[in-house]
């Protein structure tokens, strides 16, 4: 069981956390919503719950709740640009299908 960050993603997360001035790490998750059933959650984490799993990758703490982990295991979080747009990208091996926009998915 593991979730990882690419070097670029880790660098960005560190910068964003520093800019924010607080937070223990990055929370990854899924919620059941969207046109294809599931959607990613990407949030700053201010606290770690008892049942949460914590991974460390490239110096960044990644916090995931056990339910989400079932859908996220093996995911690599990347950061990239598409034209003027830039942001985080989930490379998730569990995904069978995504909707046109790629914002929600099925496993």
């Amino acid at each position: 069981m593991a979730i990882t960050l690419t070097d670029t993603a880790a660098e960005r997360v560190k910068a964003f956390l520093e800019n924010r001035g607080k937070g223990v790490g990055l929370r990854l998750g899924v919620k059941t919503t969207g046109c294809s059933g599931m959607a990613y959650v990407l949030e700053f984490a201010d606290e770690v719950a008892e049942e949460d799993q914590v991974f460390e990758s490239n110096g960044v703490k990644i916090i995931v709740d056990p339910k989400s982990l079932l859908y996220l295991d093996g995911t690599e979080l990347d950061y990239g640009k598409e034209g003027l747009n830039e942001g985080f990208r989930f490379n998730n091996p569990n995904v069978k299908d995504t909707c046109g926009c790629g914002e929600s998915f099925t496993v």
């Binding site: 997360v13 964003f16 990055l26 929370r27 919620k31 919503t33 969207g34 046109c35 959607a39 990613y40 959650v41 990407l42 949030e43 700053f44 984490a45 201010d46 990239g80 598409e82 747009n85 830039e86 942001g87 985080f88 990208r89 989930f90 995504t98 909707c99 926009c101 790629g102 914002e103 929600s104």
Partner: peptide, 17 residues
């Protein structure tokens, strides 16, 4: 694949929202 931003805790938007 859509590019995502980090939200504040509990403020994640639904897809397309």
């Amino acid at each position: 694949m859509a590019l995502l931003q980090i939200s504040e805790p509990g403020q994640s938007a639904n897809p397309h929202e």
